[in-house]
Write a protein that binds this DNA or RNA. Structure first.
Lengths: 137, 137
DNA sequence: TGGTTAATTAACCATTTAGTTAAATATAGG
DNA sequence: CCTATATTTAACTAAATGGTTAATTAACCA
């Protein structure tokens, strides 16, 4: 994981960091004010680390004001991520067209699942073998 | 990291998995055909694991056809992710308005950085102290 | 100068992630 | 039944992630 897009998605893959972005979307805010809502759940250095992840992804820029570090949201990487997602739009916009087919599929899969449950029961009766590698001794 | 959105972003935060989704966007495909382009870089079990991450995020569903496991892209989680991003659209759509201001900021920051370099050099001459905790003995 | 607040860094630890190889399971087909 | 192909699982390992506490740095202010 080294490219820009991966860093962006990685940064977004955490609820704390997403909450920090939400807070930042209301305007510039310094580190301790940004941290405040999270100090019930984690320490300040933990927040600093999350912030660093957001910075490394380019989602947040930090400036200086005396001993404060005002943080600002930068939307550019989100634009990149959104653009990437755009190529899959067809896969979630034909929902109405596909709903009927989807339901049929689900029904079919459920029937399949029931069949398999029966099959597995029979096999259990015969004795199921364990999977994978044996423990080294 | 346990919620749906986090799992989705986490799944997208890897170039191999994104490439797998790209492949899947061209239609249903079984595991070994899906794996083929990646076997130069990693083993088949590694691909299986990536596939499992995509499945757990709900981005891929696997069915059965004899010994084959045809995989299919499911766009729903991408829809959820896109919807989440939507709330930040204002932060990357005013780009033209903000470009000038951004450039001014960058310039200001570069000047700041130069000033700081000088400051640090002076301090180095006086002797810089190390940061953080001391090694336990 | 000394104390207080803001923020970061270091050292450490537990868990997760991403990969490996070897073995096991599932199915088809001679 | 035996064998080949497809896929998964197990066991293991190295590195990354997400957290901690203690120490350090930076700047303000009385």
């Amino acid at each position: 994981m080294n490219d820009q897009l991966s860093r962006t998605f990685q940064a977004l893959a955490d609820p704390t960091r997403r909450a920090m972005l939400a807070k930042l979307s209301h305007g510039e805010i310094n580190v301790s004010d940004l941290a405040k809502p999270f100090l019930k759940d984690m320490s300040l250095p933990a927040v600093t680390k999350h912030l660093k992840v957001l910075e490394n992804a380019g989602l947040v820029t930090k400036t200086r004001d005396a001993q404060y570090r005002p943080c600002k949201l930068n939307g550019t990487p989100l634009k990149t991520a959104t653009d990437w997602m755009e190529q899959y739009r067809t896969f979630f916009e034909e929902s109405l067209d596909r709903l009927g087919e989807y339901l049929k599929t689900v029904t079919a899969q459920e029937k399949e699942a029931k069949k398999k449950l029966n099959t597995k029961k029979k096999k259990t009766a015969k004795g199921i073998k364990s999977h994978g590698r044996k423990k080294q001794t």
